[in-house]
Amino acid sequence: MLTQPATTQSLRTLVRSVPTVDEVAAKERVAALGKRSIKKESKLSALRMVISMMDLTTLEGKDTPGKVRQLCSKGMRPDPTRQDLPTVAAICVYPAHIATARAALGDSGVKVASVATYFPSGQVSLEVKVDDVREAVKAGADEIDMVIDRGAFLAGDYLKVFEEILAVRAACGDAHLKVILETGELGTLDNVRRASAIAMAGGAHFIKTSTGKVSPAATLPVTLVMLEAIREHHAATGEMIGMKPAGGIRTAKDSIKYLVLLSETLGSAWMSNEWFRFGASSLLNDVLMQIRWLETGRYQSPDYFTKD
C-alpha cells in the first residue's frame, strides 16, 4: 500500500515490495495452460465472449471518418448476416475521431474508447497530456487509454510516472482509465510487475499491455504477470482492476488462450467485458470465421467477411 501523499521514497518502497518474477516459470505456466483442449460447445461460448470483450481498434495516421463509421457498424453488428452475436465492448480511436464514433454508435451500448496523453510515445509535458485527456472526455469518450512515461520509468523516476497517472485519472472524471504499460519497451517481466503496481496505485481502472505500435506487443507471459499483479492488488485492497492485452492477438485460438489464463488466474468474477478487454483489429474476423467453421463444418475464407 502507498502512503499519501506519495514521495520518491514511498514509490521506491512500493516498487521494492513487489515480488520478483520467475520468467522461466511464467513461460512454463502459459505454455501448459495454452495446451488445454477445449471442446466445441465451450469454444463457441468462449468466442462469443471474446467478441463481447473486444475493443475494436483503429489507430492509424490514415484513419478517416468513413473508416471510423465503418468500424462502428462492424462493432455493433460484427456479422451482418446474423443478429445473435454480441456487440463488441468498445470502439477505440484517436481523439480526433471520438465525435464521429459517438454519433455512429448512438444508443447501441458500445462504448467509445480513446487513446490520449500523446499516444503512443507519451513524450510530452504533463500539461499537454492532461489537456489531451480533458478534450477527449469532453468529446464524449467513455474510456481513456493513457500511456505511461516509459522513459521516466526506466530512469527510475517512479514518482513522475505515478503522479502523471494520478493527474490523468483526475482529468478523466467519470471516464474509465486504462493505463498502457507498453511492456515491449519495459524489457523484463520484473519491470512489468513493478509498472503494474504503480499503475494500480495511481488509480487505473484497467491495466493494458501495449499500444500495438511496438513489437512485441501483448504476449501470454506478460499478461500472466499483469493478472498476477491484479490478483495481489485485489487480495491486499479488495479492489478489482481490469486487464486489457492489446496488439498482436490475431487469431481466435490465441484469444481463447488468454481467456484460459484469465479464468485460471483471476477466476470467473473477471470473465466479463467489465473486467477484461482485448485490444485488437484483425482478431474479430478470425473469431467470426472460427464461429462459422464450428457451426457449418466448413473452413472459412476471409473473402466472405467484411473488411474493416
Binding site: G297, R298, Y299, Q300, S301, P302, D303, Y304
Partner: peptide, 8 residues
C-alpha cells in the same frame, strides 16, 4: 470432402 467444403 474437406477440400471441397473449404471456402478458401
Amino acid at each position: 470432402p474437406v477440400l471441397a467444403n473449404h471456402m478458401d
